[in-house]
Write a protein that binds this DNA or RNA. Structure first.
Lengths: 161, 161
DNA sequence: GCGGGTTTGTTACAGTGTATCACCGCCGCC
DNA sequence: GGCGGCGGTGATACACTGTAACAAACCCGC
């Protein structure tokens, strides 16, 4: 089991993220278009959960409107490439913090006060879940594990104002 | 770790469920009104995931329309009492199969072909998750764990037609 | 240049959930 | 009996989330 390097590392890079996206697309023969880049930039820049309509609004400017449907299409693409995650309990999207195995059991830690989402993983959880499903005679196709609560940073901030 | 008794037992009882609901409400000094009863009946009777609008339609009849907003209010109430669960990945609702500790880490097993939702639990998963959160410095308020896939019954049916 | 695939823009619409206000029924109180 | 409060319901309207369908633009290889 391991845990990743923290938000600073995640946030380290709009640049890193874009570089990763470009690499992924080149490698797979897919187009990393301006719209897809802008949507990814918006998701990474904010770093918190935000809805597709928030992103659309953020990308829109007087004279240049980005329709939600375009954002959805870009997000679908980015999710297929594993660059963005969808948070089901919030109908919202976040950047993928780092490369993890495509089907890996990611645990999303959603802070309800600051909206930052951390990613964790645990072989213990994953193994236990696999055994539980097997015992239940259930064949999984995919699973989501989202935890809402307070992140350490917010707790510290609230306690020492 | 344990697993519950299977769908037959869950389904055993619209009657059991209603009795439980009445008991819960009486005990807590809350009203188990006709509307709330009807909504709970509809959720239990179908047994599969269904949206609030499905329930509203099911309860409506020529001359007696039940508005979705009323269904939502009843569902909110029933969820607060732990009689109904919400499946975030489907925007849908199911009856709570049985009494589990209010905050317990329930695992939802959602069959994508028949729509039946089984509930499981695992101390291994729960313990591992707790340790992972602690290590991440994250204080959970609540979590959801939903797995989509094929239940044993559907797999058997499909393999031996 | 041309044909065929992919991407984007645009409009419209379906599905999900909430806010607001009025009304009703009930209960306790004067 | 009358009055006021309170929770529940009905009804309308609206906000938010997501998708369908079609046309136009773009790119790329031929």
């Amino acid at each position: 089991m391991h845990r990743h390097e923290g938000h600073d590392a995640c946030r380290s890079g709009t640049r890193d993220m874009l570089a990763r996206a470009e690499a992924v697309c080149r490698e797979r023969g897919l187009q990393f278009t301006p719209l897809r880049r802008e949507v990814l930039e918006a998701v990474v820049a904010v770093g918190k959960v935000q809805g597709a309509y928030d992103i659309a609004e953020r990308l829109s400017a007087p004279g240049k409107r980005v329709a939600p449907v375009s954002v959805y299409r870009a997000l679908d693409f980015l999710m297929e490439q594993g660059l963005v995650h969808r948070i089901a309990s919030r109908n919202a999207f976040i950047p993928c913090a780092h490369d993890h195995a495509p089907g890996a059991g990611v645990i999303f830690l959603i802070c309800r006060s600051c909206g930052v989402v951390d990613e964790a993983s645990s072989e213990e959880v994953e193994g236990g879940l696999g055994r539980t499903l097997k015992r239940a005679g259930f064949t999984p196709s995919h699973s989501i594990l989202e935890v809402e609560g307070d992140c350490g940073a917010c707790r510290d901030r609230d306690q020492a104002p």
